[in-house]
Nucleic acid binder design. Sequence first.
DNA 1: GAAGATTGATACATCAATCTTC
DNA 2: GAAGATTGATGTATCAATCTTC
Lengths: 175, 175
Amino acid sequence: VVTDISWLNDREQRVWRSFLAVHARLTASLNRQIQREAGLSGADYQVLVSLSESPAGRLRAYEIGEATGWEKSRLSHHLSRMAQRGLVERQACTTDVRYADVVLTEAGRSAIVNAAPRHVAHVREWFFDALTPEQLDQLERTYADLLARLDHPSPCATDFPCDEENPDDQPPDLP
Amino acid sequence: VVTDISWLNDREQRVWRSFLAVHARLTASLNRQIQREAGLSGADYQVLVSLSESPAGRLRAYEIGEATGWEKSRLSHHLSRMAQRGLVERQACTTDVRYADVVLTEAGRSAIVNAAPRHVAHVREWFFDALTPEQLDQLERTYADLLARLDHPSPCATDFPCDEENPDDQPPDLP
DNA sequence: GAAGATTGATACATCAATCTTC
DNA sequence: GAAGATTGATGTATCAATCTTC
């Protein structure tokens, strides 16, 4: 009954639905596993990874936001919950009081050290082990292209204001 | 600081993070758009699409669960919210009272008819327009492989009980 | 005023427990 | 007892509004 409105062709629809399904199932499985095995949510994991990758286990909330791509309020709520559970600690930054420093606690560090290897094992099992080296190459390229498109929207194909039309402003910059 | 635990190599890490980032940003953008333009969440949209694809705009809750991949409770909660907003209606199935029938209301139908073209336009703009035909081919194949792996776990590489080890049980069956 | 951050309200997701009908 | 579905509790995400400090 949706056929009378403009839609994707068969292949596009197949690819799009696969894209959604792969991600939904993969993240659902990974989140369940990490929750069961380490008592962490996927969101907890992301925050802890960011912090553990920083030299002192300390970052500004702003930087965690950059790393995770979350907005301020989501991050703030989540940090509150994590702080309440003793995984991180908030500390006022000495130089500029606006910036909230977030530091990894001992509990937080042991949580991520415990969780990471299991998590990686599942990412391997469910993602990388299903891919050939060629497919890995292709994905690297394709995702880079997709991210470039998302970072740098093309001249508006839709009815939205799209003031960003300077195509040589910033080089595509890989995460 | 995470380098002393087993991890992915550089390329794998890049691909994995891109995979997560692409999906996160794409779905976040799409959800925002569809919410703003049509007052629907991504979840609403999925349910409405399933229903609108069925001949009578009527499905059993069970079938919507299959289509969306959601579990019973999530679906039930969501259908309650949608029913409250007048997008769908629950009706007892005449033949077997266990099965709950869900029917599309007029409001639900016009909501999806209004939302779909805009949604598709954004999927094109942000996803398909960034891909070459070759990349589309590659993705179709790769996602099929990934789904096959998720449907049909390989003999356990991890410490989990994995009783499903009959590799010729069911042919990989594409959604 | 703008950037960084927080709060409160609401919607959504997940889990365990329950209920009903076959 | 098992399949389909619902409920309640808790955790998570999003939006708008606010607060503080530069």
